[in-house]
Design a protein around this nucleic acid. Structure first.
Length: 849
RNA sequence: GGAUGUUUAGCUCAGCUGGGAGAGCAUCUGUUUGACGUACAGAAGGUCACAGGUUCGAGCCCUGUAGCAUCCACCA
């Protein structure tokens, strides 16, 4: 016997451990066909947020659904060491203890980082359990484990040998707080308030000035030239002459290049090749010197004279003061311009000339574009991916960190010769590169490396390529695209067949959830309050594929109410089945119309829900199930069943019980992928259940035949009309009316009983020839009179309104049907439908008149 | 500058290859009917951003305009 209320805490208790213990999460049933997914490995930095909850729920629904569909489902869990993010957190913790990583040294620091990983990894496991994720823990991986490390080294060496990894000096994005290089996509551009400084550069051999504007005066110590556009009439004659750099009195040549925008600033641009990517390109073109003026923590170098050792911003301020004092400041303008910030530390990124390792992207990108057959869902994300691939820059993969895969390159300490090796080189003549690889370098191998690659293991053979990858659109570039090109390069196959892309979760006002706004929602709090099933249902319904969604607490409440509804319908059904209930097979022909009707509706629902589940459209699937549960089952059939279950026909009672049982079971199984805990709980309460809902089969349609059920529709419509009648006439819902039905057809057995129960009728008279003065309602086969004291005028008014409505409808139908174009061009079924409607309206009109 | 998404009820959003506009919440009326007040019954509420076009027929397809959002590339 179920409790009166659905108590999520009670329902959730112990189920996850039970599933795990029974081994239901473990893949490997060779008698079935495989369906595989890898989890997007969360960072071991901390707690999971609502975005993770969403992403993993989508995957868990898929895993559980596919399992019910008879697949051998592998959902492989794991975590990401998250180089920069984790190192930053560990360093922050150390700083609070008053130590720096340099005090500890590399080895000791890494011990601390591993301890961190253990601690937070445990957190994540607990949260996965709370979420109910059906992960195969026997195959769990970590991006820094032995197998992944081997894969990383193998990939690095292979690409290096092919010339697709190189070490080069380039302008890279440098994070001066974390002291590491970043890749282009780790830089976030934000419109930032700044100043545009206009300086007077004295022209050598003249008393004139050239005005040059800059936003970063501190880089003037690295200037090597001033560029103007050769088409710029103002400055054309100056090309070839020299100006004096007001920062350090150095002579700078005035050069011409079309790159310079005549309209922007003053049309004269300073050129700092070591601190700006565009200037770097110009320096390549014109063979200009590259002078660095800052070190790796953005402090000014010796060449900056009196500014040496200052922070970049302090230098900026002081230098402007100096130039102003020298009388060479023209003006300062306030501007808003995009400035690159580090994705992790938030600090302003410094473009910086530096020697780093790069992946040469063009050949890999071309191959990926040519050979990838990943099916993006929704498909538009394929274009997002393609466009990025087509314009991708070389990927800077070296990071000046300790937490990560150390670059397997070794330098001869005398000659500097580079050896790249998968095995460690212990030769004292060789020293390993100090840097580690970008975290994404290892995550890019996730789908195949977790299955054993570079070894061709049984799991790799069986589960790769994976069936589905699900993630948010925000990491298509970071991760999805890199998995695709690495997979095609190393396995010759796309890493997954389908790639399901979902949106981001935002707060109730549509803002991104962020620490600084303090608007983040901890999924664990939601679970505590409303239960994990309600959270899961909320996350995966009510939004369209690929669209963002907002966290709205009322919707979680509403999800929880829905689950309670199912809970209570189960309570009703189970109470009525009785102790020794055994379902009997349904013979559709022997059913009453009301039963036939609900079976038909169930079948339609199963069909619709299945087809949307197959397309990963969990929102659409849920909405069909929802309206079946609420409208067709709870509000209609379940109420109808109360009549037949109280009747005297024992054998038919068993049929009704069986139908209730089948419907309930199917509802439970269909809701279960969304809400596995309540699903299991209710399933266990069913008679004749298996050990777990996890080993059940997905519902299939019950045998049914086509038949005319308009009288059932009329019954439902009549009930609604009578209820409506009572409300408009201010009668109590249980007010006993006298109902008179005129019809020439024989009503199906029980019609009057059903009607009586729902309308609280005092008396129902059925006859084929009636003259009543009651309020009149016309249906295609019959007329209903409600005998009452309503004035004739009011009745007449209502009748006129009904007639007007029908006449309009008839006109609409006739217009369509009289249009030869419609008859000729519209599908046959549509024409037939309209004809039938017309006929019905005409019948009803005739009955009203 | 390029691209994508979005504009539908008071609010948040659905709407599946074009065939009479839907849900949740909120609002209003009513209800101790034996599954459920975390409920039930009923009601009200929309020129589907705007302008053209295609079509027998457009929320849906095409073109354009406007607002909002996001991504990519960026001007020193």
């Amino acid at each position: 016997m179920l409790d009166k209320r659905y108590d999520h805490k009670k329902v959730e208790e112990g189920k996850y451990e039970f599933w795990k213990k029974e081994g239901y999460f473990t893949a490997g049933d060779k008698t079935k066909s495989p369906f595989s997914m890898v989890i997007p490995p969360p960072n071991v930095t901390g707690k999971l947020h609502l975005g993770h909850a969403w992403d993993t729920t989508v995957q868990d629904i898929t895993a559980r659904y596919k399992k019910l569909r008879g697949y051998d489902v592998l959902w492989l869990p794991g975590m990401d060491h998250a180089g920069i993010a984790t190192q930053a957190k560990v360093e922050e913790k150390l700083r609070k203890e008053g130590v720096s990583r340099y005090d500890l040294g590399r080895e000791k620091f890494l011990e601390k980082a591993w301890a961190w990983k253990e601690e937070y990894g445990k957190n994540i496991h607990e949260q996965w359990a709370k979420m109910g994720l059906s992960l195969d823990y026997t195959r769990e991986r970590f991006t820094l484990d032995e197998g992944l490390s081997l894969a990383v080294k193998t990939v690095f060496k292979t690409l290096y040998d092919k010339g697709l990894i190189y070490k080069g000096e380039r302008i890279i994005n440098y994070d001066p707080v974390l002291k590491t290089a970043l890749s282009n996509i780790e830089v976030v551009y934000e419109d930032t308030k700044g100043k545009f400084y206009y300086f007077k550069y004295p022209i050598v051999g003249s008393n004139r000035y050239l005005i040059v504007a800059t936003t970063r005066p501190e880089t003037m110590f690295g200037d090597v030239a001033v560029f103007v556009n050769p088409k710029d009439k103002r400055y054309k004659d100056l090309i070839g002459q020299y100006v004096i750099n007001p920062a350090n009195e150095e002579k700078l040549p005035i050069m011409g290049d079309e790159y310079v925008d005549i309209e922007f600033g003053t049309g004269a641009m300073k050129c700092t090749p070591a601190h700006d990517p565009n200037d770097f390109a110009l320096s390549n073109k014109y063979k200009l010197e590259r002078i660095k003026c800052m070190d790796d923590s953005a402090k000014m170098l010796d060449i900056c004279g009196q500014f040496k050792g200052m922070d970049r911003y302090e230098c900026r301020e002081k230098l402007v003061e100096k130039i102003k004092a020298d009388g060479r400041l023209e003006k300062i303008e306030d501007i808003v311009h995009p400035v690159g910030h580090s994705e992790r530390s938030g600090t302003v990124v410094e473009p910086f000339l530096s020697k780093q390792w790069f992946v040469k992207m063009k050949p890999l990108a071309e191959q990926a574009l040519a050979k990838s057959n990943v099916n993006f869902v929704p498909s538009r994300f394929k274009n997002t991916w393609k466009q990025w691939m087509e314009n991708v820059d070389d990927w800077c993969i070296s990071r000046q960190l300790w937490w990560g895969h150390r670059i397997p390159a070794y330098y001869n300490i005398k000659t500097g010769e580079i050896k790249v090796s998968i095995e460690d080189i212990n030769d004292p003549m060789y020293k390993q590169d100090e840097d580690v690889l970008d975290t994404w370098f290892s995550s890019a191998l996730w789908p195949f490396a977790t299955l054993g690659w570079p070894n061709i293991t049984d799991d790799y053979k069986r589960y790769f390529p994976t069936s589905l990858l699900s993630t948010g659109y925000d990491i298509i570039f970071f991760w999805v695209s890199r998995m695709i090109f690495d997979s095609l390069e190393f396995t010759k196959e796309s890493p997954f067949k389908d790639c399901l892309i979902h949106g981001l979760i935002r707060d109730s006002q549509g803002r991104k959830m962020s620490k600084s706004l303090g608007n983040g929602i901890d999924p664990m709090d939601v679970i505590e309050k409303y239960g994990v099933d309600a959270l899961r249902y909320f996350l995966t319904t009510g939004s369209a594929p690929g669209q963002d969604t907002r966290y709205i607490e009322e919707k979680v409440v509403s999800a929880s109410n829905y689950l309670n509804k199912i809970w209570n319908s189960a309570r009703y059904v189970l109470d009525n089945l009785g102790e020794d209930f055994k379902p009997i097979e349904i013979d559709f022909d022997k059913l009453d119309p009301v039963e036939k009707d609900i079976i038909n509706k169930l079948n339609v629902t199963i069909k619709k829900v299945s087809s949307y589940m197959d397309k990963y459209e969990y929102s659409m699937a849920s909405s069909y199930l929802y309206s079946f549960v609420y409208d067709d089952f709870c509000s209609s059939y379940l109420e109808m069943s109360k009549v037949s279950l109280q009747g005297s026909n024992e054998s038919y009672k068993n049929i009704v019980k069986s139908i209730l049982f089948y419907i309930l079971k199917d509802i439970i199984i269909m809701i279960y992928p969304y809400a596995p805990f309540i699903g299991e709980e209710l399933y266990q309460a069913l008679p004749l259940h298996k050990k777990s809902i996890m080993i059940e089969d997905y519902p299939t349609e019950i045998n049914a035949k086509k038949c005319d059920l308009t009288s059932v529709e009329i019954l439902y419509k009549m009930i609604q009309d009578i209820r409506n009648y009572k409300v408009t006439n201010k009668l109590a819902p249980n007010y006993k009316l006298k109902l008179v039905i005129e019809t020439k057809e024989k009503l199906f057995e029980g019609f009057e009983n059903y009607l009586s129960r729902f309308s609280f009728a005092k008396e129902i008279i059925v006859s084929d020839n009636i003259t009543s003065k009651g309020s009149k309602y016309a249906y295609s086969k019959m007329t209903l009179f409600i005998e009452d004291d309503i004035s004739l005028e009011e009745k007449e008014a209502k009748r006129t309104k009904d007639i007007e409505f029908l006449e309009n409808e008839i006109k609409r139908c006739e217009n369509m049907l009289n249009n030869p174009n419609f008859i000729n061009k519209a599908p046959k079924e549509k024409v037939e439908l309209e004809k039938n409607k017309l006929e019905e309206y005409k019948k009803r009109l005739a009955l009203l008149k």
